[in-house]
């Protein structure tokens, strides 16, 4: 009986490796991913890279224009604080805030989605209605309401934003789970004796990851915008802490006098959101097509 070994070109490659390879051939996605990695590295090393203390005021040097080679690379704001340093430290706040909101969204939405998608019956409608309710409320209104109750602060605000993002994760997970639930390999897993937890954790969740990854990157983009909006409104980071949103806010107040103050944080936010969505698209393209690979008929 002839048993050809499979095509050596595609030998022994786990699905992750294959998706990664496909991702790396996608130039736009790879650029986006590199940009994100760079931003994260730079921002994490803020205390090393920043030339100045971001909160150090120098009232003699207000509104300095950006000048390469000078002490203040991007200029100074109304309090004479170095814009470049504030940008780097501000990035930390923004990125941590984004991660916090997204993580909260995942922790609430994904398990619920798995339960609703797998068990169906009454659990599905019950959970779906709850998340529909959350989804119906505009995210900022919820955040403002929470802040009104608890007091301003970036952490509280972002947790509230995370709750508001959870329906997105719930829906994506639920949809993927429902589809996978009816696949023969799930039935087959039941047949060989897998427990429910094993099926959900080992067989369903990994197969539901591609759309989840995309949802994560898109949500992170929204979280950056949410943080910027809240801080812009003065409800997020409190002075003197820097974040891109708050920098945008103070810069807006001084727009007539020093327009350059809004540019740096504005561009930073735009670049990060753009990179996140493009990376997400890249993941979708890389993993989506891969699963549909079939031979010719």
């Amino acid at each position: 009986m002839s048993n050809r070994l499979p095509n050596p070109r595609s030998k022994q490659r786990a699905p992750w490796g294959d998706g990664l390879r496909r991702f790396l051939t996608d130039r736009v996605a790879t650029c986006a991913a590199i940009t994100l990695i760079l931003v994260i590295v730079v921002v994490l090393l803020a205390n090393v890279l920043a030339p100045q203390d971001p909160d150090l005021q120098d009232l003699n040097n207000k509104y300095a224009s950006p000048a390469l080679g000078s002490e203040h690379l991007l200029g100074t704001d109304r309090f004479g604080r170095d814009l470049f340093s504030r940008l780097l430290y501000g990035g930390r706040s923004t990125i941590l805030a984004t991660l916090l909101a997204t993580t909260v969204g995942i922790v609430i939405g994904v398990p619920a989605g798995l339960l609703a998608g797998y068990f169906g019956r009454w659990i599905d409608p019950f959970l779906s209605r709850i998340f529909d309710g959350i989804f119906a409320v505009p995210s900022l209104i919820v955040a403002i309401a929470v802040i009104a109750l608890v007091g301003p602060g970036l952490v509280t605000a972002m947790i509230a934003v995370g709750v508001v993002f959870s329906p997105g994760f719930f829906r994506v997970t639920r949809a993927a789970t429902r589809t996978l639930r009816h696949e023969a390999f799930i039935e087959s897993s039941v047949c060989i004796g897998c427990s429910v937890w094993r099926i959900v954790g080992i067989h369903i969740l990994p197969n539901a990851l591609p759309p989840l990854i995309v949802q994560t990157t898109v949500t992170m983009g929204h979280a950056v915008m949410a943080e910027a909006s809240l801080s812009f409104l003065g409800l997020g980071t409190q002075p003197p802490t820097a974040s891109w949103g708050s920098m945008l806010s103070t810069g807006f107040a001084d727009a007539v006098v020093a327009p350059h103050l809004m540019l740096a944080p504005g561009i930073a936010i735009t670049v990060v959101v753009l990179a996140l969505t493009q990376a997400g698209e890249g993941v979708r393209r890389a993993t989506g097509r891969g699963l549909a690979d079939e031979g010719q008929g």
Partner: peptide
């Protein structure tokens, strides 16, 4: 008929059925 149908990427120059 022993063996499998070859993939289009693996067609030999000679007879494609020879292996089987």
């Amino acid at each position: 008929i022993p063996g499998n149908v070859p993939m289009p990427t693996e067609w030999p120059t000679g007879c494609r059925f020879y292996d089987r």
